[in-house]
Amino acid sequence: MSNAEKMLDIKDLSVVYKTDLETVYAVNGVTLSLEKGATLGLVGETGAGKTTLALTLMRLLPERTGKVTSGSITFEGENIIDLPEAQMRKIRGDKIAMIFQDPMTSLNPVLTVGEQIAEALLVHNEVGRSKEEIEARVDETLTLVGIPPARKREYPHQFSGGMRQRVVIAIALSCEPDLLIADEPTTALDVTIQAQVLMMIRDLRDRLGTSMIMITHDLGIVAQTCDNVAVMYAGEIIELGTAEDIFAHTMHHPYTDGLFASLPNLKSKTARLQPITGLMPDPTNLPKGCKFAPRCSRCMEICKEVPPEVYTEGTHSIRCHLFHQSKEN
């Protein structure tokens, strides 16, 4: 990975939510990078910090509570953590766009679909497009996601869930962003529509050459769409690699193993699935050693005391004590 190709470079990013009563450690020292045109899958349980990471990238953390405590996010050569709000607004929607999780709530019920797609275009109208040109672009975007442009005068309630998600995607794509963050874009949809929407996202990404961060807890989606995969647990990236590293390789973080074991497999016959026992640690009070140690079946003494270092092998890196030990032996 040469530096020139990196469009997004996150270094040692930590984010907390601070209230009067407690401090929630949502993201802890995440280091990630993304090349132009590549897709990164961000996998993890609910509460692992995936959405917080995405919101931090957009600088949309809740103002009064969410704070970045350390690290940097370099997007196209600029550290966006220090950018003034006015400049950040120019990036949002234009350079980095986000597809939201729930199409039922992320569209404004009193504005027509066309007006909502046109909004980002109007806000980022540096080239001085005329009204007609914006309308034409709205039509074009709608066609792109497979909705007849004539429906742009309709309101969100006149669309089905799958169609609404297309509208949400159309909004994100309207300005042709360099980076698209898809925050569980299919969780609110049923399976057949899921497949359609995923196909479409993948198709559009390839056609427009957009980089993408796909946040999901569905490993199937990751296998279908992503070049690189990062597994998140309790605010840390515990395993990072190419899709082959994660899906084909045998060496894994025990948590990733657990994730795969809890999925039904078509080929082997199992009577029961094996869930990972226990719950995520309380993010206000994280274990001092490895964050996964309390639930880990291969937990050792050192895991409870010392946070593990990253073990790297080619493109594949794992944050676990197990592999450091095997290397020493």
Binding site: M58, L60, R89, K90, I91, R92, G93, D94, A97, M98, F100, Q101, D102, T105, S106, L107, N108, L111, E119, A120, V123, H124, V168, I171
Partner: peptide, 22 residues
């Protein structure tokens, strides 16, 4: 707190615009 307000912010809309149009 509605998601579409957050979505509008993610689209780069300013506070004044969000108040007026959403």
């Amino acid at each position: 707190d509605q998601e579409y307000v957050e979505a509008a912010r993610a689209g780069g809309s300013s506070s004044a615009r969000i108040i007026i149009s959403h």
